[in-house]
Amino acid sequence: MAREAIYQQSGDDDDHRDDPGAPQTIQDTRLRPSQMQEMVGQGDVIERLRIAIDAARSRSEPLGHILFDGPPGLGKTTFATVIPHEMGTSVQLASGAGLKAPKDLIPYLTNVEAGSVLFIDEIHRLPRTVEEYLYTAMEDYRIDIVLGEGVNARTLNLELKPFTLIGATTRAGMLSAPLRDRFQIREHLSYYPIDDLREIILRNAAKLKVKVDEAATHEIAFRSRGTPRIANNRLLWVRDFAQSRAGGKVTARVAVEAMEMTGIDSLGLDKQDRSYLDTLIRIFDGGPAGLEAIAHTLNISSDTLEDEVEPFLLRSELIVRTRRGRMATSKGFEHLGRANPR
């Protein structure tokens, strides 16, 4: 088989802040690793995958089905494109949102080559009927196609070539248990430590031919929320700022000025994050306050706050969620330079 991956993509992506689900751009493709040895971070996941890949190759069998779960931007799609390269096979890319009926899935299944990879992003968005259609395809490499209707209907059993299904999801709990259990390998991707993000920034700066000093990589990494995709976005913006205002060289001062221009503070909070925290502290005296009350005060939907703003504030220990509502922590007061009335 050709070692170059064959990419096919369907469906639309979610619209999230920091571009976690946006379509791939030229920059995304350029900065994304193409081999596993180029990947930084997630060392335990990489080690387990290497073992599985080596074993499958030695037996000349397809790799077992794999499910990646975790927050956006941590490398699920990168793993899905690197694994076929390691296996020396091709890959088809699909989106769970675009597979609305079994007929949408059939072209992908009938086009799989022996040992190739079918990658379904946001697999938790598959309708239940499509999920059930995958059961026999994953276990028996077979699908049943119904031809005709009523008493004239007949079933066509179509044999598939052995393939590997790789699923990626930000909400593993939304997958049905029968589908989850059919993945032999399940890996959860966690947030990256600062040192790994710095290494990613250094490598990608070299690809972009940008001069970045060591202190600048720390500033960018520390404000990237532990997420490589956000780190790349920050790097691209700092590069543009440096080329326009600083002669192209990225120093710590240039990186800080670039971040402050877009409202990114020392912890990685943006304007919306700080507005939430400021409203909770200034108007609600640090809480407890209900999510709906905060949302109405900010004139932002509660879903946006719960899905996009609160996760990082909770992870940064700036707020807590209690039965009575949201409350700012001492660290939250300190970050905004406010006295804690409690």
Rank of each mutant, 00 (worst) to 15 (best):
T227G: 01
D144I: 12
Y133H: 07
A221W: 00
T77E: 03
I283N: 13
V40A: 07
L267F: 12
Y191S: 11
V151C: 09
L156V: 11
Q37N: 13
R245N: 13
R338C: 05
K271M: 15
H16G: 11
F241E: 02
L189Y: 07
R180L: 11
S302G: 05
H85L: 13
R48F: 05
E132P: 05
S10K: 03
G11P: 06
N299K: 13
L267Y: 11
R154Q: 08
Y133T: 14
E132H: 12
V210Q: 00
S190M: 09
G73P: 02
M261E: 11
E260Q: 10
T322Q: 12
L280K: 01
R326Y: 15
V250C: 02
I300E: 04
L175R: 01
F284T: 03
A328F: 02
D18K: 15
S34P: 01
L269C: 12
K207P: 02
D273Y: 02
D18P: 05
K161W: 04
G226C: 05
F241G: 03
L313R: 00
G115C: 09
V117Y: 00
T329Q: 14
A177T: 09
Y141S: 09
H218W: 06
A101K: 13
G247N: 08
Y108M: 13
R182E: 07
R154T: 11
T329G: 12
E214Y: 03
A172I: 09
A339F: 01
D195L: 08
D265V: 06
N204E: 14
G21L: 07
G75Y: 00
A293F: 04
R203I: 13
D213G: 01
E38N: 15
S34W: 07
L267G: 12
K331G: 07
W237S: 14
D54M: 15
I166L: 10
A339I: 08
A221G: 06
R57T: 10
E334N: 14
S301R: 06
F119A: 07
Q9K: 15
M39Y: 14
Q272S: 09
R326A: 12
E131V: 08
I281V: 12
R245C: 08
I145D: 06
